[in-house]
């Protein structure tokens, strides 16, 4: 839980970019959008090519030895004291909130805390560290937003996405019923308990489409995969995008050249 008071750093010259495995494989355009947004803010982005996965899937499945082995490799990716930005509340939450716990009683505990303290979810970083000002170049559109549970509850970012979207003059944000309820992804939960997860995402898609919006944005690719995947399979009139892709596409003359 986001109990501790957050002390934002001053705007740095450089950041490490931790892309996450889902972005890497399925949504690289969201990662590229994040990198470009940062660069447009005048920040140099360092992408360590040795990065793989934060270890969360194994961690939440109970396989902590395996999670630790993978997470340990990530600890060494950030030698300089730059902030580490992550385009995901879920992976960001894992690194920020759970690394210290995962590495307790090990020689890497201090190093894990050092990394955890520097981890920032990217929309939070853009809004509260870069103080980004967005100029909307897109056509009028109505969107809904699903903030991931980890962004909302582990990192306390329930208001961040809406605050960024509110800077876009031609975007109308509508709120779905039970906006705070989980979409049913939950990592391996979705395959261990498919019927329950299916019931959850089915209601999430209904509440989103009930808003009248035909598009939704989200902070996390897990939720995106889940909600958009369900909508596609059921032919529901709803398309999803990572919020970073959405922000970049609407504020850039460069037609989303991230493909």
């Amino acid at each position: 839980m986001a109990d501790t008071l957050k002390l934002y750093p001053t705007r740095p010259d450089k950041v490490y970019f931790y892309g996450t495995c889902l972005v890497d494989l399925f949504y690289p355009e969201a990662g590229m959008a994040g990198i470009r947004l940062l660069e447009r803010e005048g920040i140099e982005v360092i992408f360590p090519q040795e990065q793989t996965c934060c270890g969360q899937p194994a961690y939440t499945s109970g396989y902590h030895d395996e999670a630790r082995a993978v997470a340990r490799r990530q600890l060494s990716l950030f030698p300089q004291d730059y902030p580490i930005v992550v385009p995901s509340g879920s992976c960001g939450g894992m690194m920020r909130q759970h690394y210290p716990q995962l590495f307790r009683d090990t020689d890497d505990q201090e190093r894990a805390i050092g990394v955890a303290d520097r981890v920032w979810e990217l929309t939070d970083f853009l809004l509260n560290v870069c103080h980004i000002r967005l100029q909307d170049l897109g056509k009028p559109v109505t969107v809904a937003m699903h903030t991931s549970c980890s962004a909302r509850r582990e990192l306390g970012l329930g208001g961040t996405g809406p605050a960024l979207l509110s800077q876009l003059d031609n975007v109308t944000l509508v709120e779905q019923a039970r906006a705070e309820e989980c979409c049913g992804f939950g990592g391996t939960f979705a395959v261990r308990h498919p019927e329950i997860s299916g019931a959850m995402v089915s209601e999430k898609v209904s509440t989103l489409t009930d808003t009248g919006a035909r598009e939704f944005v989200t902070t996390d690719c897990g939720c995106l995969m889940n909600i958009a995947g369900y909508a596609e399979k059921q032919d529901a009139p709803l398309e999803g995008q990572h919020i970073l892709s959405f922000l970049w596409d609407r504020t850039s003359h460069d037609e989303g050249g991230s493909q």
Binding site: L25, F26, M32, I35, A190, S202, M225, G229, K233
Partner: peptide, 23 residues
């Protein structure tokens, strides 16, 4: 993809990974 596609379509792999695109 097993239980995943019981309710959802499968996520589509990107043509090039983020690692590759950055490179």
């Amino acid at each position: 993809l097993g239980a995943w596609t019981q309710y959802r379509s499968a996520p589509k792999l990107a043509a090039r990974t983020l690692h590759q695109q950055v490179k």
